[in-house]
């Protein structure tokens, strides 16, 4: 009984499925027949259905009425805004790339444009913090001409260290800010010579007695090993109860920002006091004097010639 009812159910399902398929085939054939025999009638009937939809679509897309125009303009404005944003982002990215390339170009030019001695351009591949001690690792070594004891420069003439160990492909540079490294410095502001000691982390420490006006921003020159301003006092540690005060000097270019250095091929030479004074004088004139044309510059020398001529005129008028 159960088997008979299940078979009957399956058979009835199969029959209804076949009926459905026949129904679909018949409808398709009837439609095709109607389309072939009465195309105009079918088209007229179809247009009754199609026309309102198409007209509404074209009203939204092309009408000059306020509502469709508002929708269209809003959409167009939003599309334009998105496009502008994309273009702006792209332009900003291009500008940033150009700026980075220009800076790198300038940096490389300053490293390699130095006249006087041959230098080796090297990329910095390790910095303090990433490698032990206050050292820099560069990607040029003995095979590229780097020698132990050679000075290492950033920019034109600012020495930041000395090659302490040269391997065939790389070299390790001991920075002048290495703990224990001592150098003579000149601090502009109080205009004094003093000794600076490396404390690591790219910082030099200068110690002066209380009473000397040491201030943040005072420029520091190392006349013995640099031909320019090394950096400026970034922090002053001064306690009235202590007889001395300390200033911490940071270089103009932070160590984390150095990507290229140049390595000299001739060893450094010691500098006498007179030479140090000369270097200081050159630094002052180079950094603080601007070549202003004579007809624009107003100076005491130009003022005295005017007073003399006016005196001569007044004397002449008295004679007359």
């Amino acid at each position: 009984m159960k088997k008979f009812s299940s078979i009957t159910r399956v058979n009835s399902r199969r029959i209804s499925q076949n009926k459905k398929r026949v129904q679909i085939a018949v409808v398709v054939l009837l439609c095709l027949l109607a389309l072939f025999s009465m195309p105009k009638v079918f088209r007229t009937v179809a247009s009754v259905v199609v026309s309102p939809v198409v007209m509404t679509k074209s009203w939204f897309a092309e009408s000059g009425s306020s509502f469709p125009q508002y929708l269209r303009n809003r959409k167009e404005l939003l599309d334009e805004l998105a496009l502008m944003r994309t273009e702006l982002a792209a332009t900003g990215g291009e500008r940033h790339t150009i700026k980075t390339l220009a800076q790198e170009n300038e940096e490389l030019r300053s490293l390699l444009g130095y006249e006087g001695e041959e230098r080796i351009l090297a990329g910095v591949i390790g910095r303090p913090g990433n490698i032990p001690y206050d050292s820099l690792m560069i990607d040029q070594g003995v095979s590229d001409g780097v020698r132990e004891g050679a000075p290492v420069y950033i920019g034109d003439g600012t020495v930041i260290g000395i090659v302490k160990n040269a391997a065939p492909q790389t070299a390790l540079v001991e920075l002048i800010t290495t703990p224990g490294f001592e150098a003579t410095v000149f601090i502009m502001g109080p205009d004094i010579y003093t000794n600076a000691v490396g404390v690591g982390g790219g910082q030099l420490r200068v110690g002066v007695p209380q009473g000397i006006e040491l201030a943040v921003g005072d420029m520091v020159v190392l006349p013995s090993i640099t031909s320019g301003i090394y950096g400026e006092v970034s922090v002053v540690q001064s306690e009235p109860t202590r007889p001395e005060q300390y200033g911490f000097v940071s270089p103009h270019t932070p160590l984390s920002g150095i990507r290229f250095v140049s390595v000299g091929t001739t060893p450094m030479q010691s500098v006498s006091f007179e030479e140090a004074q000369q270097i200081l004088g050159e630094i002052r004139s180079e950094f603080f004097m601007v070549p202003v044309p004579e007809d624009i510059l107003i100076d005491t020398e130009s003022g005295s010639s005017t007073a003399t001529s006016s005196l001569e005129v007044s004397e002449e008028s008295v004679d007359i």
């Binding site: 679909i24 409808v27 398709v28 439609c31 389309l35 195309p39 088209r43 179809a46 247009s47 199609v50």
Partner: peptide
């Protein structure tokens, strides 16, 4: 199928591949 027939009647008139 009726919907398709309407689309053919309106848009497919004169087409080389009718209906």
């Amino acid at each position: 199928v009726l919907l398709a027939a309407f689309i053919d009647a309106y848009y497919g008139y004169g087409s080389s591949l009718p209906y």
